[in-house]
Nucleic acid binder design. Structure first.
Lengths: 238, 238
DNA sequence: GTCAATTTTTTTGTATACAAAAGAGATCAT
DNA sequence: ATGATCTCTTTTGTATACAAAAAAATTGAC
């Protein structure tokens, strides 16, 4: 599947080593291979990917610029651990950006946008019916990307994609919550309706709620997080 | 003047060479020392700053990650030239983020926030009375930062600051437009009123209008841009 | 045995070196 | 003279080398 023009840095896709490394490490962070707070050893990473330290450092520089990694002078790079409060803040901003995209989409969507939205929406439906969380997770992403694209604001779309990616791990946790998938789908339906009807304000508020709920759900999970922290793994910033 | 906790990357302030270089080059781009479309030669920059290519490259990597520089594989780095349409898109997003910050500020501001807002607001007033564009430009920035801070969403504040910085050169052009400064100040007054009254929706819409580039301002922007392009080194993306 | 100071080891940050690719320029054919 | 191909130059991308700083470990004092 191809998301033309939505991905940031698309022009750099022709992978120089450092670029591939950036994606690999970023993916590792988002996936959980590298845990929050974990130290990213340059030589270790270099060995792992079979390259020298130079491109590794360049990749880490880029990741630090987008806030996924923190480079402490002379003390190496660690995976940023946003902490519950910061994650909640990010959801708050995500809700606003998404709702903006939805409002713009309601006013500006073309026939192709409409087709893409409906297509991804029905994919979500199938996945929801099959109760296939993994599949729904992916389809849901495509659905949201379709709305970003329909906003016809490329910069906004890039921002949304970037933030969506960063929130991925926390969103993923949520889908496992009982019945969340079907509720999510019915929210989608209402959003699609508003966008296609050209009702910008309805699209805005429905999308805001749709995303904000995830933030709320997340704060429910915060207790789990802090419990986990007490027991072992994690480790807060600083 | 100190904007505690607002600047992104604040924790990296302890300047390793590459970090200082990043700031220097970023500043050069925002200031106009490096023009949009200009090629950033690594050896040239290295000579200029008296360092080797390595930290220069690391700085460029970071700048490319935040979208100020484009690194074309095997073809070097150039200063990104957003082009009028993209700039417009960025202002559209800025308007939404600012209005969000205003809405949150209306609901969440503390006494200290109130003091900071009023203080910066009255500084703007003095500068506007003296018709001191440069001074107003600076005070205006402080005013907006005070609102970001009052939103009590650190992530949002960072996003706002980053985008505000990127739009700096274009905003600056706008202040030169006749009478814009005094109009701007009266808009500020209405915004302050809404925030202090706790009227989130009024704050939101007033800030949106204040920031959005609409009507005449858009054509002013475009004509300024094309003039600059004609005279300068310019050159569109791609 | 515990704590502090010093030495050793690791690791980061920057410089340099080298290979490969892109760009510029010259040569040759038409 | 114009256009295309080949060569030479410049520039990027990655590896390696080295210096300085931080972390770890050893030694020594109490």
């Amino acid at each position: 599947m191809y998301f033309g023009g939505i991905f940031p840095f698309e022009d750099q896709m022709a992978g120089n080593t450092f670029h591939k490394l950036r994606d690999e490490i970023e993916n590792g962070i988002v996936t959980g291979t590298f845990e929050p707070g974990e130290r990213l050893d340059e030589v270790q990473l270099a060995a792992r990917f079979g390259v020298s330290r130079t491109p590794i450092r360049e990749a880490l520089m880029q990741l630090s610029a987008i806030g996924l990694v923190e480079i402490r002078p002379r003390r190496g790079a660690i995976v940023v651990d946003p902490g519950p409060d910061r994650i909640f803040e990010m959801f708050e901003v995500m809700a606003e950006l998404e709702s903006m995209a939805g409002a713009l989409a309601a006013r500006r969507h073309t026939e192709e946008d409409k087709a893409a939205i409906l297509e991804s929406h029905s994919r979500c439906e199938h996945s929801a019916e099959r109760e296939d969380t993994d599949s729904y997770y992916y389809d849901n992403e495509v659905f949201h990307y379709a709305i970003y694209a329909a906003s016809h604001n490329g910069f906004l779309a890039e921002q949304c994609v970037a933030l969506h990616r960063r929130l991925r791990p926390y969103r993923r946790l949520q889908l496992r919550v009982r019945n969340r998938m079907k509720v999510s789908f019915s929210e989608h339906a209402a959003i699609v309706e508003a966008i296609l009807a050209g009702d910008a304000e309805a699209a805005r508020s429905r999308l805001r709620d749709h995303v904000a709920v995830q933030g709320d759900r997340f704060s429910d999970l915060v207790s789990n997080l802090s419990r986990r922290e007490a027991t072992g793994a994690g480790g807060q910033r600083r």
